[in-house]
């Protein structure tokens, strides 16, 4: 069980500019001194992709830093203030300690050179994979209290994130929620006690509509479970297709996750579009939405 949320923003991979970004773990995949840039790139291509790195030169870094320390933050409730800062520091607070503090912290430019220039970057932002399908990435160390609009404005100044699509903004607030991937099934039922279900933000879904959607899934399942007990028949859990947002959210919160964080509805948690690649985002989302609605009342074989 978690009692507060200190989450970094999450961007979709497809919105990252890969003419700037490159893969690599600054600790385990660093470029060896004797390696040329070509040899290093070749070696990395054969290994599993890990972090995505966004290198900055001095000017880019200073522009970003200045925007970050001047950006507007949200006001916290009194009761939140004392609980939050024990564990981790918001990026803007760290930045305010000095112009170079971030370069010795989460933006440390170690491990590799900028593949475009062959030079050591001035600072490097790391993005860490956030979902199994590798469609979502979080900004490492960027837990923040900046207002959402400010996060978009300031974080889009990071090279490679100019068009960054933030599916979730960073937050630091009091938030009680369960380690659902370990505890709950896809129907929000407690694995260790089938009589107990959870719904709403306690399960790690985030947002009003998301809470309502979990209430809907739980209601349908408790009805089915109640009837099965009463009529002494098998309980067949009711789940929605992974193509639907309501189904995908339930799946997301109950799927193993290295560092579970509350999640909003977003297209990154739906399976990719199977047809021809659609470049236009709006058009693609329209297709994904139509596919979802088509599958809303789809009952898988054997569950009829």
């Amino acid at each position: 069980m978690y009692f507060y949320d200190a989450a970094a923003p999450i961007v979709t991979k497809e919105s990252i500019d890969f003419s700037v970004a490159f893969y690599g773990d600054r600790y385990s995949q660093e470029k060896k001194k004797e390696e040329t840039m070509e040899e290093w790139k070749k070696r990395l291509a054969g290994e599993e992709p890990s972090y995505i790195n966004l290198p900055m030169d001095q000017e880019e870094y200073e522009t970003f830093w200045k925007a970050l320390v001047e950006a507007e933050v949200v006001t916290l409730h009194e009761f939140e203030k004392k609980e939050i800062f024990e564990g981790c520091m918001p990026i803007e607070v760290m930045a305010k300690r000095g112009m170079d503090t971030l370069r010795f912290g989460p933006l440390k430019p170690m491990g590799f050179d900028d593949p475009r220039t062959g030079k050591r970057p001035y600072a490097v932002v790391q993005l860490r994979q956030d979902d199994k399908q590798a469609e979502l990435y979080n900004l490492v160390g960027f837990q923040t209290n900046l207002k959402f609009g400010e996060q978009k404005r300031v974080f889009q100044l990071i090279p490679g994130l100019g068009q960054g699509d933030f599916v979730k903004y960073g937050v630091m607030h009091r938030n009680t929620y369960l380690n659902s991937p370990e505890l709950l099934t896809e129907t929000y039922q407690l694995k260790s006690n089938p009589n107990l279900y959870f719904a709403g933000q306690l399960t790690g879904v985030e947002g009003y509509v998301e809470s309502i959607s979990s209430g809907m899934v739980v209601a349908l399942n408790t009805i089915a479970y109640y009837q099965s007990q009463k009529q002494r028949i098998d309980y067949l859990p009711i789940t929605f297709s992974a193509y639907t947002m309501i189904g995908s959210l339930a799946k997301y919160i109950s799927t193993p996750n290295h560092k579970f964080q509350p999640m909003n509805a977003n297209f990154g948690i739906l399976p990719e579009w199977e047809g021809k690649k659609i470049r236009d985002k709006k058009e693609r989302y329209q297709k994904l939405a139509e596919r979802s609605l088509k599958h809303l009342f789809f009952v898988p074989e054997g569950k009829k």
Binding site: V209, E210, I212, S213, N264, A265, Y285, A289, F297
Partner: peptide, 25 residues
């Protein structure tokens, strides 16, 4: 309650809930 557009993830979720007869939506 955020966007009502189908091309927005939260808009899609609302539309699914409407079809499922959600009282709150």
């Amino acid at each position: 309650f955020k966007s009502n557009l189908l091309t927005n993830a939260c808009g899609l979720l609302k539309e699914e809930l409407r079809k499922l007869d959600s009282l709150l939506i």
